[in-house]
Design a protein around this nucleic acid. Structure first.
Lengths: 338, 338
DNA sequence: ATGAAAGCGCTAACAT
DNA sequence: ATGTTAGCGCTTTCAT
C-alpha cells in the first residue's frame, strides 16, 4: 500500500549519522570497508529512525525477479492447498515467488483483491473458477486492453479468454473409474454431479453406461452444491430416487466425503452396499473411513504445467497470441470405498 | 530471479516505435493524449518485442507497498490453509500481499526457499515451526546482524528469537475440554500427545487429573508423530495400554482423526465406548464421522494479531526491541465425538 | 575508510 | 499530441 507519510530513506539515515549514503549501505549490508565505530553508529541510527529499505528500489538495482499470483476461490477448500503447495515449491525452484489471492465469494472484495494484486505480479495463475473470475479482473490486466499480464488457467477450456490453459481430460478417467466399478460387479451406477458447473464428466458417464448396456434413467443422476453438505444431501436424495444403486461416481472428493457421511447415516455400508468413487485424489480422502477411492489429479503435474506455461509466455518462447494448451489425465487411486 | 539476458525496457520499445518513452508509457497505460495511430503502433511494437514492464521500477515510482512472507512447514497439513486463508484476506484489507513459503522437510531446500524469499518481503510470519525455522533463515534476516526484517511467530514462546509472538493459551482450553468430558461422566481420560514437541498441554492435562482425583498412570499417555498415521498408531497403542479408557484428549485434529480411524478399526465406538477431543478446530473435523469435537483455535484472530504485530513494527509504533506478546485462548467446539 | 557520481526502469511534471 | 527533464531509493563503480 502506498504510504501517506514519506518513509525514512537511506538518505535520512545518512544525514542523521553524518555519513554518506554509501557508508550506510555498507554498514547495513555487512560490506567491508567501514570502521566498526561507523558501522555501529549507522546501525544505531537506522534502528532509531525505524529505517526500512525500500524493496522496490533494491529490486530495481538487483535486477528482475518473477512473482506469480495464484488466484483461487477459497484456500480452505482442500483442493487448493495441495495445488498451492505444489506451485509454491516448483516456483521456488525457478527462483520465483507466489502471492496468494483467496478471492472468496464476495464479488466486491474479490475485485478489490485482484485489483491490488495485479500490479504486484508478473503473471496470474487462475484455478477453480466457477464464477467468471476473468471478469473480476481489472480491465487493464487483460490482454485485450493493451498489454495485460500473462494469465494461465488451470482446469480451463480453450474458450477461456486467457493466454494459456491446462485442460483436464476427464473422459478417460471416468472410463477407468467405471471400468473399475463394473470389474467389481457393479451394474447400477449412479452419479452425483455439481449443480453449478456444466461438467463434461456427466457426458462421459452417460456415454459409458450406454455403450456398456448399463441401466440409466433420469433418476441415476443427482446434482447439488460442490460442498460437503451438498454431498450429504445428494447421498440422501440418491437413496430416495435410486434405492438399489450399487455404486456412485461423485463430482469431487469433498462431495464424495459428504456422500460417505450421508450413506453412513442412512445405514448403508460403503463399499459393501454401495461403492463410492470421488474425483480429485485429495489427501483428505485417506483420512476418512472407509478411505476414499478417487480419480486423482496430479497437482504437481498441474503446477508444473502452470510454471512452464508462464515461463514460455514471459520468456517470449510462446508466440504472442499462441494460446497454448496442455492436457493432463486422471489416475484412479483405489483405496477402500470402491 | 535475476535474469541473465538484459530484458526489454521501455526505451527499447520507444526506440523501435520511433517515439519517446513517455509516449510509450501513455500508450501502454491507457492514458490520454496519444493519437490512436501512435497507440496502436506502440502496442504492436511492445507485443512484438515481448516487452514486460519492470515491476520494481513501477513500484519505486508508485510508492511503498507491503508484502509479508508466510512461512510454514507444509501447506498440505490442513491447519495451514485455514491460517493462510485468513491471513491472506486480512492482509489484503490492509493493501498488503502475502507470499507463500512452504518450506517442506528437506532442510537444504528450506534454506534456499527462505533465502530467496527474504529479500522480497517486508516481514515474516512464522507458524508451526517444529524444526528450528528461525535457524534456517539466512543470517542477515535476523535482527541480530544489522537490521533484519521483522519476524512474528505464531504459537511461539517468548523465548523465541523473533520480534513478536502470539502465544496460544492451552491451559484454560484443556481444562474446558476436561470439564466437558467429566461433565459427561468420563473418568478414565487418556491423552495422545506429540512425540516431537514438548507441549504444555500435557502438564495441564496432568494437573487437571490430579486436582480432580482422576486416575492417572504412565500408561494414560501415548505419544506419536503429529500425523494422521501417528494418530492411528497411537489409538491402537492406547487400547493396548489403557484398555478401559473412556475418553482421550488428542494433541491436534489430524492425529485425532487418525485416532478415530484407529478406534473404528479396533471396533470401538466413538463416542459411546470412548470419547475423542481434538485440538485446533479444523474444518476437516466436520467431514469425518463422527464429527470431531475439538479445542478450536480462532485462526482469524491469530492472523489478525499477526497483521497487527507486523504493522506495529513496520510503523515504528512498537518500540524497538519491545518483543510484543499476545495471547489467544481456545474454544471448545462440541460436535459428535465427545 | 569514506564520498561522489552514475544508473537501474519507470512515471509525473513540465515543456513544446 | 509528443518530447524533455526530474526523480523515486537503492547499489555499484570509481575516486579520494
Amino acid at each position: 500500500m502506498a504510504s501517506s507519510v514519506p518513509a525514512i530513506t537511506i538518505l535520512d539515515v545518512a544525514r542523521v549519522a553524518g555519513v554518506s549514503r554509501q557508508t550506510v549501505t555498507r554498514a547495513l549490508n555487512g560490506l567491508p570497508d567501514v570502521s566498526a565505530a561507523t558501522r555501529e553508529r549507522v546501525v544505531h541510527v537506522a534502528r532509531q529512525l525505524n529505517y526500512r529499505p525500500n524493496r522496490a528500489a533494491q529490486g530495481l538495482v538487483r535486477g528482475r525477479d518473477v512473482t506469480v499470483g495464484l488466484v483461487m476461490e477459497d484456500l480452505r477448500n482442500p483442493y487448493y492447498p495441495e495445488l498451492a503447495s505444489a506451485l509454491s515449491r516448483l516456483a521456488s525452484e525457478q527462483g520465483w515467488s507466489v502471492i496468494l489471492c483467496d478471492i472468496g465469494d464476495d464479488e466486491e472484495k474479490a475485485r478489490a483483491r485482484l485489483e491490488s494484486m495485479v500490479h504486484r505480479v508478473d503473471a496470474l495463475v487462475l484455478t477453480g473458477c466457477r464464477t467468471d473470475t476473468v471478469g473480476l479482473l481489472p480491465g487493464d490486466a487483460l490482454r485485450g486492453k493493451a498489454l495485460g499480464i500473462p494469465i494461465v488457467m488451470l482446469d480451463g477450456s480453450p474458450a477461456d479468454q486467457v493466454d494459456a490453459v491446462v485442460e483436464i481430460d476427464y473422459e478417460a478417467g471416468v472410463r477407468a473409474a467405471l471400468d473399475h466399478l463394473t470389474g467389481r460387479g457393479r451394474r447400477r451406477i449412479a452419479m452425483i454431479d455439481s449443480s453449478h458447473i456444466a461438467s463434461s464428466r456427466r457426458e462421459s458417464y452417460r456415454d459409458y453406461l450406454r455403450e456398456h448396456g448399463l441401466a440409466w434413467t433420469g433418476r441415476s443422476e443427482v446434482r447439488d452444491d460442490e460442498t460437503h453438505e451438498g454431498g450429504v444431501r445428494a447421498a440422501h436424495e440418491l437413496l430416495g430416487r435410486y434405492p438399489d444403486a450399487d455404486a456412485v461416481l461423485v463430482y469431487n472428493d469433498v462431495m464424495a466425503i459428504g456422500a460417505l457421511k450421508g450413506f453412513a447415516r442412512a445405514g448403508r455400508a460403503v463399499p459393501d452396499d454401495i461403492a463410492v468413487v470421488g474425483t480429485d485424489g485429495l489427501d483428505i480422502g485417506t483420512l476418512v473411513t472407509p478411505e476414499l477411492t478417487s480419480l486423482s489429479i496430479d497437482k504437481t503435474a498441474l503446477a508444473q504445467h502452470a510454471v512452464q506455461l508462464v515461463d514460455n509466455i514471459l520468456s517470449g518462447r510462446a508466440p504472442a497470441g499462441s494460446r497454448e494448451r496442455r492436457r493432463i489425465g486422471l489416475t484412479l487411486v483405489v483405496r477402500e470405498s470402491a
